[in-house]
Amino acid sequence: MSPRPKKIRNCQGRFCGRAFKPTGTPLTELKKIELHRDEMEALRLCDGEGMTQEEAGRCMGVSRGTIQRIITVARKKTATAVTAGHALIFVDEDEASE
Results as ranks from 00 to 15, higher is better:
residue 56 A to I: 11
residue 38 D to V: 15
residue 36 H to T: 15
residue 30 L to K: 02
residue 46 C to K: 09
residue 22 P to R: 01
residue 59 C to G: 06
residue 38 D to H: 15
residue 51 M to E: 11
residue 98 E to I: 15
residue 18 R to T: 09
residue 20 F to G: 02
residue 1 M to C: 09
residue 89 I to N: 03
residue 35 L to D: 02
residue 14 R to Y: 01
residue 61 G to L: 10
residue 28 T to I: 07
residue 45 L to P: 03
residue 24 G to M: 05
residue 92 D to N: 14
residue 21 K to F: 04
residue 32 K to F: 02
residue 70 I to C: 01
residue 11 C to S: 11
residue 18 R to G: 04
residue 76 K to D: 04
residue 7 K to Q: 12
residue 11 C to K: 13
residue 66 T to Y: 14
residue 27 L to G: 00
residue 32 K to A: 05
residue 54 E to P: 02
residue 9 R to Q: 10
residue 42 A to P: 08
residue 11 C to T: 13
residue 96 A to H: 10
residue 97 S to L: 13
residue 18 R to P: 00
residue 87 A to T: 00
residue 40 M to G: 09
residue 22 P to S: 00
residue 48 G to K: 06
residue 42 A to F: 05
residue 78 T to Y: 01
residue 42 A to N: 10
residue 73 V to A: 07
residue 26 P to L: 04
residue 41 E to Q: 15
residue 16 C to P: 09
residue 57 G to A: 11
residue 92 D to Y: 06
residue 84 A to T: 01
residue 48 G to M: 06
residue 92 D to H: 13
residue 82 V to F: 04
residue 2 S to P: 05
residue 93 E to V: 04
residue 2 S to C: 03
residue 70 I to K: 08
residue 47 D to S: 04
residue 43 L to I: 15
residue 65 G to F: 02
residue 98 E to R: 12
residue 47 D to Q: 06
residue 50 G to V: 06
residue 56 A to C: 08
residue 49 E to F: 04
residue 60 M to C: 10
residue 21 K to W: 05
residue 45 L to S: 08
residue 81 A to Q: 01
residue 3 P to C: 14
residue 17 G to Y: 06
residue 37 R to M: 12
residue 88 L to F: 04
residue 10 N to M: 09
residue 17 G to W: 06
residue 43 L to Q: 08
residue 57 G to W: 02
residue 16 C to S: 14
residue 86 H to W: 02
residue 62 V to C: 12
residue 33 I to G: 01
residue 23 T to V: 08
residue 42 A to E: 06
residue 95 E to F: 12
residue 66 T to N: 11
residue 80 T to R: 00
residue 55 E to A: 08
residue 62 V to S: 05
residue 60 M to Q: 11
residue 24 G to F: 02
residue 10 N to K: 15
residue 86 H to A: 00
residue 33 I to L: 09
residue 4 R to P: 01
residue 17 G to P: 03
residue 65 G to H: 11
residue 49 E to N: 06
residue 1 M to W: 10
residue 65 G to M: 13
residue 64 R to M: 11
residue 51 M to A: 06
residue 57 G to M: 13
residue 67 I to N: 04
residue 10 N to A: 09
residue 59 C to Y: 08
residue 20 F to R: 07
residue 68 Q to G: 12
residue 95 E to C: 09
residue 47 D to P: 03
residue 13 G to I: 14
